[in-house]
Design a binder for these strands. Structure first.
Lengths: 227, 227
DNA sequence: GGCGTTCTTGACGGAACTCTGATGCAAAAG
DNA sequence: CTTTTGCATCAGAGTTCCGTCAAGAACGCC
């Protein structure tokens, strides 16, 4: 189910959006200001953000920057201002689309669908995004890990961590990047989480967990997944 | 260089777009109708398509579908029609954005930048920034050094030092600059650190560490990395 | 409300890394 | 030829970082 974060300080707009989105089977979170928005985004990892630029506590563009610091989630900006400069600023800060109020609900929903669609992982269906090692197989589309013919059960956090590593196969991923992608932007230094969950992954996937061959530690820098 | 395909049957709009895009260092192809557009798209593989819906030979939405059959290239729709239905149809057919005429050039360019930006690869196919010598290979993105088929393990400081040198391949880097970039602004004089870590790098990477060929000392001045 | 799963937190031993000082060598300066 | 200066090398001390375990807290599911 697609999760949407709606950020707006006008209750009637939020209500209208929430009703329409829920009717179309979206999962919706709402935030009345920028601080709440950033917090919710980190906690809930929405698939798309609908953001009103006129917020009570901070400039909407700052919210965009705050999000772009750690995520590429599509951001659809709402604004009462029609000025070209405003649009350019928001778009260049990292917004994906800009809709001026008053807006048609149909159009907004269509733009939302477009934003979600293009964020989908390679919809072409040609490459299945399956990574194989000699000990196990990771299917990024089906979200499944197979080892010796049996599916391995992973917790959400374990899976998320594995996903980030596998999407960067062969590349070193810094601890900060891992923490921020999996736990959110404010967790950049909680390296103990990484230690615990990396140990879990190794225990579940490595042939010899105490001598990992695929989940490599680069001391002081980060981790690397190798085939 | 980013390649743009402009599809429009009104010469003056095409001309305005081409001039503005070329001035901003885009490479531009232009097509006056749908058939030419599909053909050019296939031949030239543009990074983004700007598409007017009002074409002489076919419905613009058909062009979108024709493109979406085989590519995920961002499509930015231009149209004189403000109707919500038109927008929804185009977006749901696979367009990425919809701008109504008359449009502001600044806004259009900003939306174009946004479309190109989000199409940029993140997990796959990034440019690799690889530097090769006859003895070893440095991958600045994956943070990997390969020597004789095996990965060389570098400590954070060693890697950081190597990175600064490699990014300045062929140029002399002063000791002060190296120290300040790797250890911080207040370490401009601790040249002994440099000696120790330069020796480590040579020991790990040079074929004959006592007669370095790549990590050259310039006495009294600094160090230089040569291929 | 009870139960099982998952997430968080803290502590500890061991491994890896950084720093430091001593020593030797070579080239430039006197 | 001697002195001085700058660099290379080595090994040990101190510090930081990582893997592991275990227990409590939070969460979701009947």
């Amino acid at each position: 189910m697609t999760r949407v974060l709606v950020v707006d300080d006008e209750p009637q707009i939020v209500r209208a959006l929430v009703i329409n989105l829920k009717a179309r089977k979206y999962e919706v979170d709402a935030a009345p200001d920028g601080a709440t928005a950033l917090q919710l985004a980190a906690a809930r990892h929405p698939d798309v953000v609908v953001l009103d630029l006129g917020l009570p506590d901070m400039d909407g563009v700052e919210v965009i920057r705050g999000l772009r610091g750690w995520t590429r989630v599509p951001i659809l900006v709402l604004s009462a201002r029609h000025s070209s400069d405003e649009k350019v600023e928001a778009l260049d800060a990292g917004a994906d689309d800009y809709v001026t109020k008053p807006f048609g609900m149909d159009e907004l929903l269509a733009r939302l669908r477009a934003a979600v669609r293009r964020a989908e992982p390679t919809g072409g269906g040609t490459d299945e995004m399956i990574v194989e090692t000699e000990g196990f197989t990771v299917d990024l589309v089906a979200k499944k890990v197979n080892r010796a013919g049996k599916d391995v059960r992973l917790t959400p956090t374990e899976w998320h961590l594995l996903e980030v590593l596998v999407r960067n196969t062969g590349r070193l991923v810094s601890q900060k990047q891992l923490l921020q992608e999996v736990w959110g932007p404010s967790y950049g230094t909680e390296t103990n989480y990484l230690r615990v969950y990396m140990a879990q992954l190794r225990r579940k996937l490595e042939t010899d967990p105490s001598h990992p061959r695929h989940f490599i530690t680069e001391p002081g820098m980060g981790y690397r997944f190798d085939k």
